[in-house]
């Protein structure tokens, strides 16, 4: 297990393996998402209170979940990079940021579009759930800005890992905001006390799995680019690119 892990963490090995692995995550991911979207849009019954607007849950909840999941991956791999000095883990952190920002933006937009007909407002300043999710978006932007502002990759890795660790506090707030304080946002349903009919819940779980797989593929792809860039002066990259059959 450890041997396998160490091998995977070696850049040339990872570069080769990730290209093979990514489609094995992306294809099932897209199939599951397509199936769950079809279920969510046309098959699942509408909600007794919200009518068809409830169908937005199938894209809103997975994107909100990924917005936090990507952040936790970014922060923990940054911490691993700080402590164990594993080069690959900083590449993972750098790769997770833009994907996380994308899904945070998506969670905010779909939430807002859901909120307009249901709550009666696009956005409410001062609501803890909405504010903390917005801060999460700015944390991602700050993280990416900090990275691109520092030219020295090693320094950028360290500074951004510290920023990511500080920001974990906000992810905890996003998660518990609806429990700790009063909020316009409803409480948790998927893994908590709320109830949801099985024929509504199962497509949501499939959607969550599909999003996770797709996220994994996107992350692998980006780590691969990051590894290539970081290893640009090494022999294996030189040999791969100048080899007669070429790389990719």
């Amino acid at each position: 297990m450890w041997k396998w892990f160490h091998q995977l963490a070696s850049p040339p090995h990872f570069y080769r393996i990730s290209a093979i692995l990514a489609p094995w995550l992306a294809v099932p991911g897209v199939i599951l998402i397509a199936y769950a979207a079809w279920q969510g849009l046309f098959v699942v019954p509408m909600d007794y209170q919200q009518g068809d607007a409830f169908r937005i849950i199938y894209v809103h909840v997975p994107s909100a979940y990924l917005s936090m999941m990507a952040y936790m991956i970014m922060a923990t791999s940054g911490a691993i990079g700080l402590i164990w000095r594993i080069k690959l883990s900083h590449a993972v952190a750098a790769a997770a940021a833009p994907i996380g920002a994308g899904f945070t933006f998506l969670a905010l937009c779909t939430g807002s579009i859901w909120g307009k007909p249901m709550w009666g407002t696009w956005w409410e300043w001062g609501d803890p759930r909405m504010m903390s999710e917005l801060i999460l978006l700015f944390l991602y932007f700050g993280y990416m800005a900090l990275r691109s502002a520092i030219d020295d990759t090693t320094k950028a890795d360290k500074a951004s890992a510290v920023l990511a660790l500080v920001g974990i506090v906000n992810v905890v707030i996003v998660h518990f905001s609806v429990e700790w304080w009063s909020s316009l946002h409803q409480g948790q349903t998927v893994f908590k006390k709320g109830t949801m009919d099985a024929d509504m819940r199962i497509p949501l779980l499939i959607m969550l799995l599909g999003f996770t797989l797709l996220f994994g593929a996107m992350l692998l792809r980006r780590i691969r680019t990051e590894v290539l860039f970081r290893e640009r002066r090494t022999r294996w990259v030189r040999e791969m690119i100048l080899s007669p059959e070429g790389g990719a």
């Binding site: 019954p45 509408m46 909600d47 007794y48 407002t121 709320g194 109830t195 009919d197």
Partner: peptide, 18 residues
């Protein structure tokens, strides 16, 4: 001066709700 609706975490089909 402003009314917002807050829904709960229960989701079900109309028939089930009945």
């Amino acid at each position: 001066d402003k009314i917002l609706a807050k829904h709960d975490e229960d989701y079900m089909a109309p028939e089930v709700a009945d």
